[in-house]
Simulated assay, not measured.
Amino acid sequence: MTTAQTTRVALVTGGSGGIGRAVAERLGADGFAVAVHYAGNAERAKEAAAAVEAAGGRSLVVGGYVADEQAVAAMFDEVEQAFGGIDVVVHTAGIMLLAPLAELDLDDFDRMHRTNVRGTIVVAREAAGRVRTGGAIVTFSSSVVKLALPTYAGYAASKGAVDAITMILAKELRGRDVTVNAVAPGPTATPLFLEGKPQEAVDRLASMPPLERLGEPADIAEAVAFLAGPARWVNGQVLYVNGGVA
């Protein structure tokens, strides 16, 4: 861990595992100082931070629930104090609870809405006031918004809200030279995606893309690195990163 200022600084929410960790490692390899956020597992966050440093970046571990505005503000304060500012915010934190709509537990839906929608609003609102000129905000949507897969109604609804938030914020930041985009992964081999799915279902989903495999977290991190770095003329977009699933 270091408290020195570096050229570019990224905050990755949900950076302790899955896609978030891959994003943190990739940005570290690109020379970023990366703040790895976690909500519940500090040890995994420390492991991810060590991986960032092994990749060549600097690291910091920060915690807090993304839907809690005070915790998020404190988290941003900590990153700014450690690294001198924030250039990129990547908001990967989210939860997925699946059920047919007729059987959807409304408490589960409320949990997803609070984390996925309110959490995105809280993090994006804080990022909008803090990201430096030339920076980027990257939210996380999902390809299921357009794929309309059974059992995904509640989750897809929460991610459709992320699409709207992202496109509107991009317009609201006119004149700031800050891009705002969403990444919408398809089926990706993460613990969040694989949990509770029989192998038959996994195989069926892996066969959907023309490339005939599940995505890997590194595939998604590649797209995030593009939006966080060279993609200065991509703004207000939802980038589908799914191997060609349509």
Rank of each mutant, 00 (worst) to 15 (best):
T2C: 00
T2S: 12
T3W: 04
T3Q: 11
A4E: 15
A4N: 09
V9G: 00
L11E: 04
L11S: 07
L11R: 05
T13D: 00
T13F: 01
G15F: 03
G15L: 05
S16G: 15
G17K: 12
G18K: 04
G18V: 02
G20R: 06
G20C: 00
A22V: 01
A22K: 01
V23E: 08
A24H: 05
A24C: 01
R26D: 10
R26V: 03
R26W: 10
D30I: 03
D30N: 12
D30A: 15
G31T: 09
F32H: 03
F32I: 02
A33P: 04
A33V: 05
V36I: 05
H37P: 07
H37Y: 04
A39G: 14
G40Y: 10
N41L: 04
E43A: 15
R44M: 11
A45I: 11
A45W: 10
A45P: 14
K46W: 08
K46S: 15
A48E: 06
A49C: 11
A50S: 14
V52F: 07
A55F: 12
A55N: 11
A55D: 11
G56T: 08
G57N: 12
R58D: 15
S59R: 12
L60S: 10
L60Y: 10
V61D: 06
V61C: 10
V62C: 13
V62M: 14
G63M: 03
G63C: 02
Y65H: 15
Y65P: 13
D68S: 14
E69A: 14
E69W: 03
E69M: 05
E69K: 10
A71F: 05
A71L: 09
V72D: 02
A73R: 15
A74F: 07
D77G: 07
E78M: 06
E78A: 15
V79E: 12
V79Y: 11
V79R: 05
E80N: 05
E80Y: 01
A82W: 09
F83R: 09
G84A: 06
I86E: 11
V88Q: 09
V89K: 08
V89Y: 09
V90E: 13
V90D: 13
V90T: 07
H91D: 11
T92L: 12
A93F: 00
A93E: 00
G94P: 08
G94Y: 03
G94H: 04
I95F: 00
L97T: 02
L98E: 10
L98R: 09
L98F: 08
L98W: 08
A99P: 01
A99H: 09
P100I: 11
L101S: 15
A102R: 09
E103T: 13
E103R: 14
L104H: 10
D105I: 06
D107I: 03
D108F: 03
F109D: 05
R111F: 05
M112A: 00
H113V: 07
T115D: 02
T115P: 02
R118T: 06
